[in-house]
Design a protein around this nucleic acid. Structure first.
Lengths: 115, 115
DNA sequence: AAATGTACTTTCCTTTTAGAAACTACTATA
DNA sequence: TATAGTAGTTTCTAAAAGGAAAGTACATTT
């Protein structure tokens, strides 16, 4: 008898969820996306809009988001070179995730306080 | 003049999202929740249903999920003591997040391959 | 000339995290 | 008696992450 593999497969769900987490996991990526989403475009603005985030963390996370084509870095070659960050159209596909997390977070806070 | 704070506030969204991430962030927490959700109840079954997860990682993540009351640990005192893990009712509130991540993950994989 | 703003990078250092492998303790089974 | 299953823990080590502070390079403003 093959006495192994008694568990139920859940890879149909686990694999795509992990694919998603590989892109948006971490403390800062979604906050950065949110901040850019509300209209912050400059490095310093984005960074200051998220309490506790250092420029080092910003630079690293932002690079990964640009690589994943969720945010684009735009260099405007005016005399003082201006750099702005914007949502790509692809970033819009994240709104259901952001909304679900936001809603859950609000309810979870209530849940924790009422206990 | 107050020449500071040129950024737009996004804390209304960032704070709850961070509250949510504090609970479900990490590589293994949602996979574990999914695995228990489909019916895996035993430590070894859950662990083996998620490729790459070591028992050490399992034990750590599972403890945190129990602390956050998303999963309960049930000790059945039969002659060989039996330990099972189950979803709490509260875990059900995560399904919108899991669904959103799963759907996005599926589409993202298509997106990556087509390029 | 000095100070300020912008967008980062670099350094230093400490704390976490991650993975492999072995180990424990108990029970049941061959 | 030896092996296997269950639910983890322990040890070791290497890699990664995290935070504070200062630095860079260039341009504008005062």
């Amino acid at each position: 008898m093959t006495g192994k593999k008694t568990y139920l497969s859940c890879l149909d769900s686990v694999k795509p969820v992990r694919d998603a987490l590989d892109v948006i996991n971490g403390k800062w990526k979604l906050p950065i996306i949110i901040s850019v989403g509300v209209g912050n475009e400059r490095f310093t603005d984005i960074q200051e809009s998220i309490p506790g985030m250092t420029p080092k963390a910003m630079a690293k996370e932002l690079k990964e988001l640009v690589q994943h084509k969720l945010i684009e870095r735009i260099v405007t070659d005016d005399y003082p070179v201006k750099i702005t960050y914007r949502w790509t159209p692809y970033a819009n596909t994240l709104t259901p995730i952001i909304d679900a997390l936001k809603e859950w977070g609000i309810k979870h806070r209530e849940e924790v306080f009422k206990k």
